Amino acid sequence: MKKKSLILVSLLLIVSLALVGCTGGSGSKEPEQTAFPEKEVSLIVPFAAGGGTDAVARALANAAEEYLGQNIVVVNKTGGSGAVGMTEGANAKADGYTVTMITREIVSLPLMGLAQITADDFDLLANINQDPAMILVEKDSKYQTVEDLIADAKANPGNLKFASTAMPNFYLLAIEINQDVKFNQIPYNGAAEAIPAVLGGHVDFTITNPGEAAGQIEAGQLRPLAVMSS
């Protein structure tokens, strides 16, 4: 049987409540249980600090610490479009003290040969957040609309540089298939690296969720061309 690890820090509160001894309606006392957790918990984030997955993980960790009475330590394990961190989480001791943030790349990683793990290697507990995607360019970009971007991509197939937060990038694949275009994907370790690449002019555009780029958009550094959502 494959070793399973826990996903999402919200489970820790449930587990801690379940392990606390309680008195039943009949008045009989349940056997005393060891409180959980008894030590700090590691929360693995498979992408760089400062990105969307990292931000969600840190918010969860801060909220959980109030209830658990133990530190939740966020550990950023980057590389391989999330393969490094998710693999470490899957191989961790299944004692509840290692929690892993899992993203949609869990589907593509084994198909690409980047990892041997699948969703079956984890106890999947909850969907923490679901965001739309936003197509972003630098404020002075020549692209004023998403139609401008697509038209240029069709005229220059494979030349427009895209900062990919993970490979393959499902958002970009949707555009390429739907619009019959091809971009030059350049891999970065999450939005925390992809956004500076756009700002520095190293790539033509990127796609992130709105929260990851909110600061740069409000500061007028990035300009959204479109929002992708089902």
Rank of each mutant, 00 (worst) to 15 (best):
N159F: 05
G215H: 06
A119R: 07
Q144M: 07
A61C: 03
N178W: 07
N127M: 04
T34R: 09
V45R: 13
K4E: 13
L12D: 04
D131A: 14
I217L: 13
L109A: 01
V56H: 15
A133R: 05
S10V: 08
D180F: 05
A155P: 03
L173T: 08
L114N: 01
I106Y: 10
D152Y: 09
V20A: 08
K154L: 06
L173P: 00
I186K: 07
N129M: 04
S26G: 00
N62T: 08
R58S: 04
F122N: 13
Q130I: 08
L125V: 12
A226Q: 10
M112Y: 00
Y188H: 09
A166Q: 12
A59H: 04
C22W: 05
G25F: 02
D148A: 13
Q70A: 07
A57L: 13
V74T: 14
V84G: 02
F36C: 05
V227P: 00
A191P: 03
I14W: 02
Q116F: 05
V9I: 10
L125H: 06
Q216R: 09
T98Q: 04
R58N: 06
Q130R: 14
D120Q: 12
I106K: 06
F205D: 01
A59K: 11
S26F: 00
P157A: 03
R223A: 01
G200M: 09
D180H: 03
G82P: 01
A166E: 06
S5G: 13
K93F: 03
E176P: 14
L173D: 07
A151R: 07
M101T: 10
R223L: 00
N159R: 13
K3N: 10
E38K: 11
V99L: 14
S28Q: 13
I14F: 11
A133M: 09
G52P: 02
I102C: 04
S229A: 14
A192K: 10
D120W: 01
T53M: 09
L8S: 11
G215S: 15
A133K: 08
L173K: 13
K93I: 09
K3L: 11
Q216K: 15
N209Y: 06
C22M: 12
S229E: 14
V45I: 15
K4Y: 05
N71S: 10
Q185A: 15
E105A: 04
D121M: 01
L125D: 02
G27V: 00
A192P: 12
Q185W: 08
T145N: 11
L8C: 15
R104N: 13
N62A: 15
N184F: 08
R223W: 03
L124I: 09
T53Q: 11
K93T: 15
E40G: 00
T53N: 15
T103V: 13
L222D: 09
G25Y: 02
A55F: 08
S42Y: 12
I44E: 09
V107C: 06
K39G: 00
K142Y: 03
G220A: 04
N159Q: 12
M167K: 09
A64S: 10
K3R: 14
L172R: 08
A213Y: 05
E212M: 14
E88L: 11
Y143W: 14
F122Y: 12
G211Q: 09
V137I: 14
E66Q: 14
L109W: 00
F162H: 13
A219F: 01
A49N: 03
F183W: 02
F36S: 03
M134L: 13
